[in-house]
Amino acid sequence: MEQDFSIMEQAALAALRAIGDEAGLRAWQAAWLGKRSALALALAGLGQLPAAERPLAGQRANALRVQLEQAHAAHAAALRESGLAASLQAGALDVTLPGRPAARGRLHIATQTLRQICAIWAQMGFQIYRSRDVETEAYNFELLNIPPHHPARDMWDTFHTTTSGSLLRTHTSPGQIHAMREYAPEPIRVVLPGMCYRYEQITPRSEIQFNQVEGLAVGKGIRFTDLKGTLTDFARRMFGAQTRTRFRASYFPFTEPSAEMDVECFLCTGSGCVVCKQAGWLEILGCGMVHPKVLQNGGYDPAQYTGFAFGMGPERIAMLKYGIKDIRYFWGNDLRFLQQF
C-alpha cells in the first residue's frame, strides 16, 4: 500500500514539474486530485481494506492529498509569476516615441491678458462693467470734458460713422459716464475692459482696434494717495512683488490732477535693456483724479465726491511681457502665434 502511495507521489510530482501552462495545471489537477484520480479511488477504496490497515492507509492518503494540493498551488503561483514577468518583458515600449497628439483648446492671448488684469482688480474689489463699442460723440468726448474743437481732441484720431454724432469709441472712458449714471449716488469701483478704435495706419506699432482696461473709483473719500497706493498694488500683482512704480504729471481732459505711471522694467529690473530703451522704466498706464465736470456729468456732486480713474492697454502689456515685436499678430490670428500661449 505504502509503496503504491510513494509511486503515486513521485509520478504526480514529476508530472507537475513538467507542466508549463494553465491548461496543463487544470489537467493535472483533474488527473491527480479529481474525482476519478488514483488517489480519490484509493480513498474511496479504504473501506475494503482490512480494519487494521485502514487508519494508516487513511492517514497516508490524506497526507498525500494535502501534499499534492500544496505542490499544485506552489507550482501555479510560480507559473503565474514567471508568466507575468514574461508578459511585462514582452510589453516593453520605446518610451522615446512621440506621444499621441491631443487637441488642446486655448484662449486668445488678449483674453488671457485681459482676464489676468481683471482678476487682479476683482480681488481688489473692482468689478467689471462693460459698455458699447459704438458711442455717441457726447459720451466719448463732451461728457468727458472734451468739448468740440478742443485741442485735447488731437489726442484721439477718431473713426466717425455716417450717422451724425455716432463714432467708434476711442477709449473705454464713455463707460465711466455710463457706470456713474447707473450707480449714482452709490460709491463705485469698477474696471471697464473693451475694444477701442483709432483712426491710424496699421503698422507693427499701431492698430486700428485694441483693448483697453479702464478703472474707476468714486466715493466720498477717494484720494490721490489712494490712486498711488492702489495702482502700485496692482503693479506688484501684475509684474512681481518687488516692482517699483513712479508717477509723472501728465494730462487727460477727464482727470485732474493727471499722471502717467511707469513701472520698473520687469526684464532688466531697472538696469536698462532693449525693451525699456535703456530707461529702466516702462510706461504702463495713465491715471488721475476724476475731473469735477466728469463727476458732475456722471451725477456726483464734486463738492462731496472725489474719484480716481486709470487706463491701460492689455496688448501693450502682453507685448512687453512676452517680447512680441508686432502688434498686428494679435488680430492676425495665425495659430503659429496663438499656440505659443
Binding site: 474689489g125 468689478q127 467689471i128 462693467y129 462693460r130 450707480y183 452709490e186 460709491p187 463705485i188 469701483r189 473709483a217 466715493g219 466720498k220 473719500g221 477717494i222 484720494r223 490721490f224 494717495t225 489712494d226 498711488k228 497706493g229 492702489t230 502700485t232 498694488d233 513712479r246 508717477f247 509723472r248 504729471a249 490732477p257 499722471a259
Partner: peptide, 22 residues
Amino acid sequence: YERMPETQISDTTPPQRANPAL
C-alpha cells in the same frame, strides 16, 4: 507726485453686483 505717500482706499466699499452676461 513722488513725495506723496501711497495709501489704501479707506472709503466705503460699493455694493457688490453680479455681471451674469459676462
